[in-house]
Design a protein around this nucleic acid. Structure first.
Length: 427
DNA sequence: TCTGGGGTCCTAGGACCC
DNA sequence: TCTGGGGTCCTAGGACCC
């Protein structure tokens, strides 16, 4: 059987686990932005009960947040990744599961030894208890024949208190479970496909699983067929993750719109620097650099423009200045005057390991080595004295000064798992 | 005033080859 | 009337995930 472990309200649970006095209070995590908040990314049970939803722009729900004294945390991805690793560690060290796989920051899959249903529940309860005791993160568990069915089981485990967070779906339980599952809650069915399915009269996972394979293949192609097989109990999904990340993206939505090329180009340079740093962290090099810019899609009164351009590098590299140069070249290829831009970003692709970098015959090996040393040195300085203490001239731009009124008050950033000054002291 | 930031996989169609 | 036929590779864009 496949076991699926899903951390409940993960980001919010992480914050609460480090601030236990907040247990039982409404807590949300939103991505922080200087103008007073982006959107809500995660919510505790109590916050959900107030009618707050994932994806709500913070400014739209300000009243509700204040009225109920909701605690608002700025998203701190590094911390969540760190806690996610601890959850993994607890499960792996328990020795209770086989083929443990991390699917995302808050979801894991594993294989369980064969047992009766009652024994399975007891067995998984042990794992659940170990995680909750060891990390403070509550989890829900689903167990079934395939990955997709295990996620169906987790859907039930989360939804009905009676399961106490653990739901097992055996062959004989599957029909009933699928009949009760709306098609749009099936893993692999997104917001584009769901309405199409509705129009075809396919309203539940069961309806979908009952269609002939040829029909599914014709209408929904390979991904659709995979989901179809999985729902029928036949494994078809492979989640063994590719060894290395294939693309690295860095993008931001700005607080204010701008049409100024110099400002945008400095933003692009900063994103390129961040992406290059990430590239070096995982000991990789890239060969293609894409820049993209977008206007504000929420402003129907303004003219819209979105575009992207890619520059292919002569040699695979992780050198900041080469990547910045390519990113800016790509940017100027697509920049158009007269639009109000709201978002920009860059994507690094054709990523490979830096062990054996294929060198251009004419490349200057000595210069490459100097560049590499320069990168190592700047990374070290920035690591020690703070981000961007040393930077490229291209990264400098004039900060727009605005102090918006009516801001939602965020909790301060605290890195309790990585920064010695923030580590919790137990008395 | 204010609306996220990452990723992966698949397919169709164009360019090119013989 | 009728305009080959079989490949491969690459890219853009769409769909999905959290």
């Amino acid at each position: 059987m496949i076991l699926h472990i899903d951390c409940n309200s993960f980001y919010a649970s992480c914050e609460v686990s480090l601030r236990p006095e907040l247990k039982g209070r409404p807590v949300v995590v939103a991505n922080y932005n200087e103008a007073g908040g982006g959107i809500i990314l995660a919510l505790s049970k109590e916050a959900k009960a107030l009618g707050l939803k994932r994806g709500n722009p913070v400014f739209q729900v300000r009243q509700l947040l204040e009225q109920h004294q909701v605690v608002v945390f700025p998203a701190n991805l590094q911390k969540y990744v760190d806690i996610s690793r601890r959850v993994m560690k607890v499960v792996i060290e328990s020795g209770l599961v086989m083929d443990f796989q991390r699917y995302s920051v808050d979801e894991f899959f594993a294989t369980l030894p064969e047992m009766t249903k009652a024994d399975t529940i007891d067995y998984v309860a042990q794992i659940k208890e170990l995680i909750e005791h060891g990390t403070g993160i509550p989890v829900s568990c689903g167990i079934s024949l395939t990955y997709t069915l295990a996620k169906v089981a987790t859907w039930y485990a989360k939804r009905y208190e009676g399961y106490h967070g653990i739901c097992v779906l055996q062959q004989s339980d599957i029909e009933k479970a699928l009949r009760g599952l709306p098609i749009n809650d099936v893993w692999g069915v997104g917001y584009r496909t769901a309405p199409k399915l509705q129009r075809m009269g396919i309203k539940t996972a069961w309806d979908y699983a009952q269609k002939p394979q040829a029909f599914i293949q014709h209408s929904f192609h390979l991904p659709g067929v995979r989901t179809w097989k999985e729902l029928r109990g036949e494994p078809a999904v492979d989640i063994s993750s590719p060894p290395k990340q294939q693309t690295i993206m860095h993008s931001r939505t700005f607080t204010y719109m701008t049409s100024d090329a110099d400002t945008l180009s400095a933003y692009i340079a900063n994103y390129a620097v961040a992406a290059a740093r990430k590239l070096r962290d995982q000991h990789s090099v890239c060969r293609s650099v894409t820049a993209f810019i977008n206007t504000n899609r929420h402003r129907e009164d303004l003219r819209q423009y979105s575009n992207a351009a890619t520059v292919r590098l002569q040699n695979p590299t992780a050198d900041t200045s080469a990547i910045v140069k390519a990113a800016q070249q790509a940017f100027y290829a697509i920049y158009q005057e007269g639009y109000q831009y709201k978002r920009a970003g860059i994507v690094l692709a054709e990523i490979t390991g830096d062990e054996a970098v294929e060198q251009d015959l004419f490349a200057d090996a000595a210069a490459g080595m100097r560049q590499r040393k320069l990168m190592e040195a700047t990374d070290k300085i920035n690591m020690r004295y703070g981000m961007d203490k040393v930077k490229l001239a291209a990264q400098v731009y004039e900060k727009e000064k605005h102090t918006p009124a009516n801001q939602v008050r965020f909790e301060p950033f605290r890195n309790q798992t990585t920064d010695i000054d923030d580590v919790i002291v137990v008395k």
